[in-house]
Amino acid sequence: MAEHVILFAGPMGAGKTTAIESLSEIETIRTEATNTDRETADKDTTTVALDYGEITVSDEDKVRLYGVPGQRRFNFMWTILKERAVGLILLVNNDAADPIEELDAFLEEFGELHEKGGIVVCVTRSDVAPTPYLDKYAERIREVMPGRMIPVFTADARNADQMRTALMSLIANIEMTAMIAGNQERAA
């Protein structure tokens, strides 16, 4: 049985905890605290350490789902969890003050995960903020990470089917990356 560790990152309020809850087959582990930073995100609680869930795909691959806090003051958790991860689902809420800037910041922080396996970008809350459109995200990704294949989806973090589509796309990328690396090793 193969195991994958996938990170869910993105700004506060992008839907990371919700996405993991949507996908997980086990009761998720949450580390939430009362949110006192209402200016950044108007919600009652916020993740301060990690979220954790699990899902089995393809009958034999177990995927461990880790959500990281969105605020930069918790970036030590980003470092800890990034070391174990082979892929990233980056959620960006389209109603953020500057979602493209958020995309930039998180790609800069987590971009190395593309070389380890893959990255998928999910744009959330486009129902409440229709712009920027997906092509703006794709354009920016091409600028900051040229030559990399990073799929961009719109997704509702509450919708298990949509999140599963994004996850399966990421896992396909991870397995392709591993296969290419294996072929290169054998050829060397």
């Binding site: 949450r30 580390t31 350490a49 990690l50 030590f76 958790m77």
Partner: peptide
């Protein structure tokens, strides 16, 4: 600031 963030995470993990 850093200790405050880390202690917050530790507390939440302990609670979890």
């Amino acid at each position: 600031r850093r200790v405050a963030s880390m202690a917050s995470s530790m507390q939440a993990l302990g609670d979890a």
